[in-house]
Every structure is written in C-alpha cells, then in structure tokens.
C-alpha cells in the first residue's frame, strides 16, 4: 500500500466505518440510559426539576475549591487537558473544514501558532495525568487498564496530529493517515468506554440537579 492509498483508505471507508460506529454507539447508549429512567419519586415535589437541573450542568463547569485543594494536580491538569483538547479539536482550521463539509456549519479558527502551543500544553497535561495516576497510591488502586489505555489513545490523537502538522513523519500522507487512524480508534471505542462521559456527565449532572431541585434543596 502506498502512502496515498493509506491516506485515501483512512480518509474514506475507514472514517465512514468509525463515524458510523461512533454515532451508533452514542445513540444506543443514550437511549439505553434514558429508557431505563429513574425510579419514580412518589413524594410530592417541592420545587421545579428543569431549571435546577440545567443550573447544575452549568455550575459544575466551574472548579470546586474543595476539589482544587484536595487534589490540585488532577484538577488543574484535568482542566488544562479538557479545555486544550477542545480548543485543538474545534478551533484548528482543517478540523473546522471537516465539520463544515459534513454538518454545513463553520466558524472562524485560531491562528495555527496558537493551536500549536495549546496542543503542546494539552499533551504535557496528559502526560502529567498519566504520571500522577501511576504515582498516587490511591489512584493506582482505583485505576483499571481502561484508564491508562484511554489516556494513551487520546494522547495519540494529539501526538499524531502534532507530527502531521510539523511534518515530522514523512511522507505527509502517511503522517496524516496515522492521525486519522488514531482518531478513528478513538471514535470506535468512544461509546463503549469511559470516554462516553463526554455525554453522560451532563445527564448525570442534570439528574443530580433535578433531583435536588424537586426536593427543594440546593445542589
């Protein structure tokens, strides 16, 4: 297989398969969660559900002081990584082009030099999180293979993107194809691993807030 054939394969059929599995898995899991529902609360409602639910979804974007003091490394690196990852994903022009071509929506991107810097910070944050997980007795005890594996997969998407952008791997079609391949791997495992928290975290937050709201308690 020539590098161009490799690129065409990862840009075409493999990407299709990965996106199909990704969308399929996410819809499947969301439906599962939603249909299963929650236990009916038989007590009389003391407050609204929707507003407190949404408020909690939003409020938990803000770092919590207790957590910051309790585990500063995870909190700070965690925020850096999440923000950095989404900046690279959503504000790098070639990525916007991809979204534009599939969903028809687009927005301005960031200068590539900034994306470059953010990517480096994000990768460093990931490495930090990985080391922290290995070093902390408690985290090590709680971690499964999946936790380490997911860190590696997410790191690979950034790292291969970085290699392709700086053309450290030659020829370029191979570099780009490797990047696409790593993204496809992430898309395929996404719905069936903890990566799914990208969606379920919001459901969890909403349920939490709604539950408290119904009981007339602040969450």
């Amino acid at each position: 297989m020539t590098p161009t054939e490799f690129l065409v394969l990862t840009r075409g059929p493999l990407f299709d398969i990965a996106v199909t599995i990704f969308v399929f898995g996410i819809v499947l899991r969301l439906f599962e969660v939603l249909i299963l529902g929650r236990k009916a609360d038989l007590a009389a409602a003391r407050g609204a559900e929707f507003k407190p639910g949404m408020a909690t979804v939003m409020r938990r974007f803000v770092p919590d002081r207790e957590k910051l003091q309790g585990s500063p490394v995870v909190t700070i690196l965690g925020y850096l990584f999440h923000v950095g990852f989404f900046v690279c994903l959503l504000l790098f022009v070639p990525h916007i082009e991809l979204i534009h071509s599939t969903l028809g929506i687009s927005w301005p991107g960031l200068p590539t030099a900034m994306i470059d810097a953010v990517a480096v910070i994000t990768m460093l944050a990931l490495v930090g999180l990985f080391i922290n997980r290995l070093n902390s007795k408690l985290l090590r005890f709680l971690s499964t293979f999946e936790d380490y594996f997911l860190l590696v997969v997410v790191f690979l998407t950034l790292f291969t993107g970085y290699l392709a952008f700086h053309r450290i791997v030659e020829p370029y079609p191979t570099a780009l194809a490797l990047h696409l391949l790593s993204v496809e791997l992430m898309l395929v495992i996404f719905p069936f691993t903890k990566l799914m928290h990208t969606f379920t975290a919001f459901l969890g937050r909403y349920y939490n807030g709604a539950m408290y709201g119904r009981r007339g308690v602040e969450s």
């Binding site: 065409v8 840009r11 075409g12 059929p13 990407f15 299709d16 398969i17 996106v19 199909t20 599995i21 990704f22 969308v23 399929f24 898995g25 996410i26 819809v27 070639p94 990525h95 082009e97 991809l98 071509s101 599939t102 780009l176």
Partner: peptide
Amino acid sequence: SIPTSDLAGAIGTG
C-alpha cells in the same frame, strides 16, 4: 482534511 466518502450517510446510518 475532508473525508472523501459519504460522511452524512454514515452519520444517518449510525
């Protein structure tokens, strides 16, 4: 960076 295949179809199927 644009996929060469029918992504909309893939999303629809998914």
